[in-house]
Every structure is written in structure tokens, then in C-alpha cells.
């Protein structure tokens, strides 16, 4: 992003216009995960740990190849394994790299009450700023993918950053770098969508996966992480990828109309008592009437 402003617009003594000056750039980035070529080697899990400075810790063995049941505050990238039984009774071992989806319409950001704890960059990356996080956990309520994870020691939330630190320096995310099969790609959203669609087409036409398609859910405005799935009609089979993710309506209501209703109610309360005072003023103590009270 920082380099964007240093792209050359005009050049002195140059014959013709500056090269690339009229080129339109798509700053929207995306990660493409082709689940059909993932071999579940977990190189991306290790790369993620290494780049982000976490060490491997003890985990739960769950009779599966999966490293742990779900992502953790210090484990942002997890291959989800699922032995999926197809309609014809054959088994299919599905592997899906689970991490933050970097929604265009991020529910975590909508739910967060702390100024600056979550930001969305113009390139689409949704990033947590732990120094501003108050650890309330509202982001968990807002996220349809169950991604933000709480560090109980520091009381801060963590999740995949899409390697915003690397991307800002023109590098691809660490997971992409480590993938041996090339099932992970990184680039502009437009390019990745094109690549994903052509791969899905190939799967449909040449490999007999008639339902192959691209997962880029519209309910959250599209995502900065898109999947190619063998069967796009059943994303749930891939370790619980929601079919139609959207920000929960309770969160939308709470962060939208409820604020107005509540704030107006409080305002009217304060205004109401003020007006009451203007109109009626304080209560008088009535002069003691004759023979009234005072007598035991």
C-alpha cells in the first residue's frame, strides 16, 4: 500500500507518457485456497507459527489428522480434516485450510466497541490492533466463522492477519510461501477470482466434479479468502464452512437500530425531566394545616 503512492505518474524528459501511469490497479487482495489440491501436509500451519513467532504447544488428539479441534489465539491457521461419505457410499478425505476469511463486511468490526481495535485496510485485510482491544469478546458474537480467539493471559483477541506486515512490504503471506503443492495462491481479488473460476471449470469439465465451484460468500460482501471446493453446494462438509454466512441479525440490530432507540430513549428521559422542572418546578411543602398531623 505504501508503495502505491510512489508509483510514477510523470517523468521528466521522457518520450511519451510514463509507463503504467494510466494503469488501473486493484488493491483488493485475496488468498485462494484450492481444497482439491491440498494434501494436508500442514506446512502452512508451521509457516504461520514461525512467521508470527509462536511455538507449538500441546494439543488435543481427536482421532483425526487434524492438529487441534479449532484454531486458537496462538494458532491461526488450521487444516480441517473431514472423512466425508459421498452419496454412493465412497469416502472422500476433505481438507480445508481454516483461518480468518477477511470479509468485505466484517462482523467482528461491526460488533467491536473499542475505538481502533479492529481495522480494515483498503486492500481488504481485516486486522486486530491488540493495543486497543479491551477483551470484551463482542467480535466473537459478530463473526460467522468463529475465528477471533481470546488470550486469557493478556485478555486480548487474536486471529490471522493475512500477514498484513508481509503484504505491506510486497510479500505474500507466510502460508502461501510454504505451500508445496501450489494449492495456495495470493494476489489481487480479481486475479484470484479468475484463477479460482477457471480451476472450478476445469474440475467440472475434466474431472467429473459437476458441483465444483468457488466459495466467496455474498452474505458477508465476499471474502478476502476464497476456496475452490469439489462440491460448492455442501461447504458444511469441509469442516463446517457455513453455507450462507452473514452477520447475525441480533448483532446488526444491536449495533444499528438498538443504538438509536436506546440513545433517543435516554435523551428523552433527560429532556423529559428537564422540561418537567421548567413546567412544574420543585414541590412545595404545604403549610401545616390546622389540626392536621403533629398531633400524636
Amino acid at each position: 500500500m505504501s508503495q502505491a503512492t510512489l508509483a510514477i505518474k510523470k517523468i521528466s524528459g521522457h518520450p511519451g507518457p510514463a509507463p503504467g501511469a494510466d494503469v488501473e490497479r486493484d488493491y483488493q487482495v485475496a488468498k485462494l485456497i484450492d481444497t482439491t489440491t491440498c494434501i494436508g501436509c500442514k506446512a502452512c500451519e508451521v509457516a504461520c507459527l514461525e512467521w508470527n513467532g509462536y511455538t507449538f504447544t500441546e494439543t488435543t488428539f481427536d482421532n483425526s489428522y487434524q492438529t487441534m479441534p479449532s484454531t486458537a489465539w496462538n494458532y491461526w491457521n488450521l487444516i480441517k480434516f473431514n472423512e466425508h461419505e459421498r452419496e454412493d457410499g465412497t469416502l472422500q478425505l476433505l481438507m480445508r485450510k481454516d483461518q480468518c476469511m477477511h470479509c468485505a463486511d466484517p462482523g467482528c468490526l461491526m460488533a467491536c466497541p473499542a475505538d481502533g481495535a479492529i481495522v480494515q485496510y483498503t486492500n481488504g485485510i481485516v486486522d486486530f490492533q491488540q493495543q486497543n482491544c479491551i477483551g470484551c469478546g463482542y467480535c466473537v458474537s459478530g463473526c460467522p466463522f468463529d475465528i477471533p480467539k481470546f488470550n486469557p493471559t493478556t485478555k486480548k483477541m487474536f486471529k490471522c492477519t493475512l500477514c498484513s506486515d508481509r503484504v505491506s512490504q510486497g510479500l505474500e503471506p507466510a502460508c502461501i510461501k510454504s505451500c508445496p503443492t501450489g494449492c495456495l495462491h495470493f494476489g489481487s481479488k480479481e486475479d484470484m477470482t479468475y484463477l479460482a473460476e477457471s480451476r472450478a471449470k476445469q474440475l467440472r469439465e475434466n474431472f467429473g466434479f459437476e458441483k465444483a465451484g468457488v466459495y466467496d460468500p455474498a452474505g458477508v460482501g465476499g471474502t478476502g479468502v476464497i476456496y475452490v471446493l469439489h462440491d460448492v453446494t455442501d461447504p458444511e462438509a469441509y469442516g463446517g464452512l457455513p453455507k450462507d454466512p452473514h452477520i447475525p441479525w441480533v448483532v446488526r440490530f444491536w449495533k444499528g437500530p438498538a443504538k438509536w432507540i436506546g440513545n433517543l430513549a435516554m435523551l428523552f428521559g433527560v429532556l423529559g425531566v428537564t422540561l418537567h422542572y421548567f413546567r412544574y418546578g420543585p414541590k412545595e411543602i404545604h403549610p401545616p394545616k390546622n389540626g392536621d398531623g403533629g398531633k400524636p
Binding site: A265, G269, V270, V273, P282, I285
Partner: peptide, 21 residues
């Protein structure tokens, strides 16, 4: 919270401005 806040506004008003003493 909103219910208690409404009650609280009235309570403070009455206790300070409206019912002197």
C-alpha cells in the same frame, strides 16, 4: 440496563431538583 437507566434518571431528578429536602 436501559430500564434501570430510565429509572435512575427520574430518581436523580426527583431526589435533587424536584423534591427539595
Amino acid at each position: 440496563a436501559l430500564a434501570t437507566i430510565g429509572a435512575f434518571i427520574i430518581h436523580v431528578y426527583m431526589g435533587t431538583a424536584m423534591v427539595r429536602g
